[in-house]
């Protein structure tokens, strides 16, 4: 067996698995979306049906808000942790990356513990303050799993910035906040764009959190779930899935082409 044959052979198991369990199912999903009376017009229907359209708008709005908040918080914290060494730094870093391994359901539960009917805020703040099941709760949940992802991307990029850049700015008389604005943020821009795209895509597709919070607002993954399981509108569920998948895929593709690295969606 020649080298070439052996290398080809190494790809065969992966190729078979991918064909059987990714390519064919995705093809089936796309076909299924056209199998209602509306045919391919179903994608037009999404835009014409107020319920779907408002869901789409809400999902995008929440995701954008989460992305902005996560970028601000994680960039601040990430730069702080990269540029300062102090006791307890590793502990803070561990805490900030802990939620990476939490499924969306657990994140939802964390928000319930904070802002649910039996939650911390409701216990210590006088008056009835329950926010876990509102848009705000959903926002916090998404923020909870977005912070670590953005943080890691920002920190990885920040560590690669040449410290001489900052030193050069200082020798030229720049004050700390000018250094951040003029030197660090421009150097971080690609990483920030990538991290933002990742945060947005992750929030768009997040299912577990919304599921646990059983929020009173509709987000796309929840609508897909109810259309499929409760209403048995399989074509519509498929069409919405295809739409959602396309949006998140394109966002992550953009993130990759900007930064050249991969971080997973999920949650």
């Amino acid at each position: 067996m020649t080298q070439r044959h052996f290398v080809m052979l190494c790809l065969v198991p992966l190729a078979i698995f991918t064909l059987a369990f990714l390519a064919l199912p995705l093809a089936r999903l796309i076909m299924a979306s056209s199998e209602s009376d509306a045919g391919w017009g179903i994608y037009l229907q999404i835009l014409q049906t107020p319920r779907y359209l408002s869901t789409l708008v809400q999902t995008v709005a929440v995701s954008l808000a989460v992305t902005a908040a996560a970028l601000v918080i994680s960039t601040t914290a990430g730069l702080f942790l990269v540029r300062n060494r102090f006791t307890g730094r590793n502990a803070l870093l561990s805490i900030l990356t802990l939620p990476l391994a939490f499924p969306g359901v657990v994140v939802g539960f964390m928000i319930i513990l904070l802002g649910g009917r039996q939650g911390l805020v409701n216990q210590i703040v006088p008056g009835h303050l329950v926010f876990a099941y509102s848009v705000f709760g959903l926002f916090l949940g998404y923020l909870y799993f977005s912070i670590p992802r953005v943080l890691l991307t920002v920190m990885a990029a920040a560590e690669k910035i040449d410290p001489a850049l900052e030193e050069a700015a200082r020798t030229l008389g720049a004050r700390p906040h000018r250094i951040i604005l003029d030197v660090l943020l421009p150097a971080l821009a690609p990483a920030l764009a990538a991290a933002g795209a990742i945060a947005f895509a992750t929030a768009m597709g997040a299912f577990g959190t919304a599921f646990t919070l059983a929020t009173d607002i509709d987000v796309l993954p929840m609508v897909i779930y109810t259309e499929f399981t409760l209403s048995a509108k399989i074509a519509m569920a498929s069409a919405l899935s295809v739409t959602l998948g396309l949006v998140t895929w394109i966002m992550l593709l953009m993130a990759r082409s900007i930064s050249g690295q991969t971080v997973a969606a999920g949650g």
Binding site: L22, P25, L26, L29, A201, M204, G205, A206, F207, P221, I224, Y225, S241, V242, L244, G245, T248, W249, M251, L252, L253, T262, A264, A265, G266
Partner: peptide
């Protein structure tokens, strides 16, 4: 990695 689990 990109397509939500629900869709898959």
């Amino acid at each position: 990695l990109a397509i939500p689990g629900l869709a898959l």
